[in-house]
Write a protein that binds this DNA or RNA. Structure first.
Lengths: 335, 335
DNA sequence: TAGTATTATGTAAGCGCTTTCATTTATAGC
DNA sequence: GCTATAAATGAAAGCGCTTACATAATACTA
């Protein structure tokens, strides 16, 4: 690989000048610039970004920590971030935190040691305090899918409460009166908020929520099945089910089917997230769209604006989910 | 951030000694080592990996290029690679190539400029010649999901032909005699190979393939629908359909349903890839498992063995797909 | 116990860039 | 034509490490 030194020699200028034309951050005469560019071209020169980072203490790369690299959710998010960054000439360095505290911290330290210019974090296991402390250091961070009041400006989050509300309201407007709710793990704030939205919609429609029709799962497909079994076993009537996410909805739907229930005629189901699978399961799932790709882009824009001085960008911290109507929820059957 | 210099000062030793205990690559007396470790601990020292990379020309990180960051396929692959690398203390730097030649080349150059120790590439648009040339340089590469004879040792691939064969054979053994085939884009080697496997199975069972029952799609779900329409429109009878991937199978299944065909009773369908969605669509898809996560791990192991001297590892270059029986294919109805 | 082989540590020269500061060259003003 | 100012370039000191190579300390041999 050619170095800047060889370029400078071939072009007959100093190192500093070559650096200037590369970075375009100081005046260089047109003639010299052309000589340098020609030399670069001729040598197939590519700056060594490691050396650039070391010397400039900037790396033009943003670190991303996600829980997992697989799964529809993170994929969309990463993709959103990467697209936005690449368009701005920034690169991404990705680490996985596996939802474990030690692993998340380790990932963060790795990204820091890699001289990232900023971090976009999707962390679950690490405490608010840790993040607040981290944010007070000199590595800029933006949190995705997590809201910490003291770090409000650094958070890109979804209005989960509204999502829960919308899902429920749709069913109520379709005439359902007996609704069951399948929650995510209540210690997770998003699960709790979605549930709160559900309650608000119920109250608003003058319905009281029957605690016997609440089941708490863990956001996994299998727990959707298990919860559905439980709900069915109680023998209480319900014509609609709102699930705190799509995967549980898929699990629930399968159990419903094996119990001879026809979705949506016997039972309407609405999910949350609008994962790819929502379009594949049968009947297609009515759900709440979680614009995670868009949120990823926004996190990237936050970095571009705040770290890379792209002032013009408009930011938005809280996203509003929207209802996606498909086939799994319908007006209640007459009679 | 503390630097090695501060550590050396606090420990009362030279830079070199600190470096030695960090890298554990030269003898240091037990006493000194402890002093150094204590100093590191006290300062919360973390080596700056950028500086390490620059000085050592090794980065302890492997570069990965995938077509996209989203989608079930790449997620599994990335996850497999990351797990294996992390366990060995290596890190991953990920770039997306978006299946475009310029973008793939750009991604590769970025990874090189980041001083990766090796590259794991999932590239589609770039030519064999480019890769052969790249491989002859001094950046080690391993290709995933692509087989180039001259680079056979650097390729981790799947026996697609066998997969096509197995999918078809399953149907034949279930008594089907009239099979349609929905292919991927034939210019892609995997699409072609899968199709060849199909033909082999047909021949082996003494059946001749009817070209009218072949449709060529583009591996997308929508083209699965379109192809299914075409096949149905011809009015030729067929009781089974083998699809070159799951997404097309999903599209096809949907069209079959709207045409009043009951899968699997009226029509058996088998897919290829065993994506997550295969478990979610209804009926659950019988398909060929593509162990992409495992192949990702293997690519990582290739790097660990060949670049990081972990001699003990066993490598495997070609993976054999296996049939996963679910509900979308069944024995042909009597009569 | 001198002489040699080992082991432990230090010195200093880079790695390929960026960036400050000094210097040279061009442009303008009178 | 001569100074005052601005524009273009160069020289050189790092960035935080690794790694020859040199040196000092210790252990072994006869």
């Amino acid at each position: 690989m050619a170095t800047i030194y060889q370029v400078s020699e071939l072009a007959g200028v100093s190192l500093a000048t070559v650096s200037r034309v590369m970075n375009n951050n100081a005046r260089v005469s047109e003639a010299t610039r052309n000589k340098v560019l020609a030399a670069m071209e001729q040598l197939g020169y590519r700056p060594n970004s490691i050396a650039q980072s070391l010397a400039s203490n900037r790396s033009n790369s943003v670190g991303i920590l996600v829980s997992e690299l697989h799964g529809p959710f993170y994929g969309e998010m990463l993709s959103g971030i990467e697209n936005e960054c690449r368009a701005a000439g920034k690169h991404v360095i990705i680490a996985a935190g596996h939802s474990e505290e030690a692993s998340e911290k380790d990932g963060i330290e790795f990204l820091i040691s890699r001289s990232c210019d900023a971090l976009i974090l999707h962390v679950e296991a690490v405490s608010d305090d840790y993040l607040i402390k981290l944010a007070s250091g000199n590595m800029p961070i933006v949190l995705i899918n997590r809201f910490i009041p003291r770090l409000a400006n650094n958070c890109i989050s979804l209005d989960n409460e509204l999502g829960g509300y919308l899902a429920t309201k749709q069913l109520l407007q379709q005439g359902h009166k007996q609704l069951a709710y399948m929650a995510g793990p209540m210690w997770k704030s998003d699960a709790k908020e979605r549930y709160n939205g559900h309650l608000r919609a119920m109250t608003e429609h003058g319905l009281s929520f029957n605690p016997a029709l609440l089941a708490e799962g863990d956001f996994q497909d299998s727990s959707g099945s298990a919860c559905m079994q439980q709900l069915l076993a109680k023998g209480l009537p319900f014509t609609a089910l709102v699930c705190a996410n799509d995967e549980m909805a898929a699990g629930a739907m399968e159990v419903a089917r094996t119990h001879g229930l026809n979705v949506p005629y016997d039972l309407s189901i609405v999910g949350f997230d609008n994962l790819i699978l929502a379009r594949y399961i049968y009947p297609k799932l009515t759900t709440i769209d979680y614009p995670i790709g868009e949120m990823g882009r926004m996190a990237a824009r936050w970095v571009l604006k705040n770290i890379y001085q792209q002032q013009a960008l408009q930011l938005k911290n809280v996203f509003e989910p929207v209802l996606v109507c498909r086939d799994s929820a319908s007006a209640i059957a007459a009679g």
